[in-house]
């Protein structure tokens, strides 16, 4: 009883292993210095109230980068080099519960290959398994079953509607097996003040604390940093903030947030030198566009040679 209370407060550490996520900025944000095995982490994406929808996925601007970061963390957790020495067997399977059939694996497979190449002959390769439930209750059941399995390192899912009992059951399952649940949710479901529908999209001034308790061990709000586009395509600039959960502590008054550069080529954190300030392009009316910065590329795609296409508007 006492342990349960303390566990809820986040003060009672059961001695579970803490794995560094491989993103130093994120590790600094988390109080334990990493993600603890057997925990649930909620990632709140910017304006993603339609994650599983079809054509509505532009309504809130789903291209925030939350799922990419969650995938990168999942790959890191399943890295066989971080295997738990105390346990007889290590978990190196990532289960992606793809409700809505949106997940595109070729964006993630190079990260696993880079991890395998980096590990060399000694290490293995994390296994990526995709499950596609077609109903909501199937989705909740799949996440529950995947979190119960000790051989699973991370479960990545984006459930639309989750009630508190389901999340509590997942938390208990994760505690028992040591798997980490990474749930990507939409901000509007948790009481965030999203973007105004219609008109110009507003720039979020800063992440606000959500209302309502959660069973997840941590709630991280992720939003892309707007206004300063990154010159390098391979780097994404994201803003993270710890927005809830027992890890954030109950006595925190200030908001802990940080910026993170996600290197898309290998799923690691990029250093600051990738960030090259680009000329700020102010939105102008049609017809009088000036200094719009369009990149010119010359590369091969799919075996077909592509000539250089220069596009510049006067």
């Amino acid at each position: 009883m006492v342990t349960r209370v303390l566990d809820g407060l986040g003060l009672y550490f059961e001695g579970r292993e803490t794995v560094a996520t491989g993103f130093p900025s994120l590790d600094r944000l988390l109080p334990a210095g990493g993600v603890r095995r057997g925990s649930l982490v909620e990632w709140l994406a910017g304006g993603a109230e339609c994650l599983a929808g079809g054509a509505e996925c532009l309504a809130g601007g789903v291209g925030g980068g939350a799922i990419s970061l969650a995938c990168a963390v999942a790959c890191r957790l399943a890295d066989p080099r971080w295997m738990d020495q105390s346990r007889a067997s290590h978990a190196s399977t990532i289960v992606v519960v793809d409700r809505g059939q949106r997940f595109y694996p070729p964006a993630v497979i190079p990260w696993l290959d880079a991890m395998a190449d980096h590990a060399g002959k000694g290490g293995g390769r994390p296994h990526l398994v995709v499950a596609r439930p077609s109903r909501d209750d199937d989705e909740l059941w799949t996440i529950d079953q995947a979190l119960r399995c000790p051989g699973v390192a991370a479960v990545l899912a984006w459930p639309r509607r989750v009630h508190a009992t389901a999340m509590r059951r997942w938390q208990l399952a994760a505690r028992a097996s040591g798997a980490v649940g990474l749930l990507v949710r939409g901000l509007s479901e948790c009481g965030f003040s999203g973007q105004r529908p219609g008109g110009e999209p507003t720039r979020p001034s800063g992440p606000t604390r959500p209302s309502g308790p959660t069973w997840a061990d941590a709630k991280l709000a992720i939003s892309p940093v707007a206004g300063e586009p990154v010159a390098d395509l391979a780097v994404r600039r994201l803003r993270l903030s710890l927005a809830g959960g027992p890890w954030s502590g109950n006595e925190m008054l200030e908001e802990r947030s940080t910026e993170l550069l996600l290197d898309l080529t290998n799923g690691h954190e990029a250093t600051r030198r990738h960030l090259v300030p680009a000329p700020h392009a102010a939105p102008v009316a049609v017809g009088r566009l000036q200094a719009a910065h369009f990149q010119t590329e010359h590369f091969q795609a799919g075996g077909f040679q592509l000539g250089e296409v220069a596009c510049r508007a006067s």
Binding site: V62, I67, Y104, A107, L233, T265
Partner: peptide, 9 residues
Amino acid sequence: AAPQRRPIW
């Protein structure tokens, strides 16, 4: 293809 050129969704 390079992962930065492929969307995850």
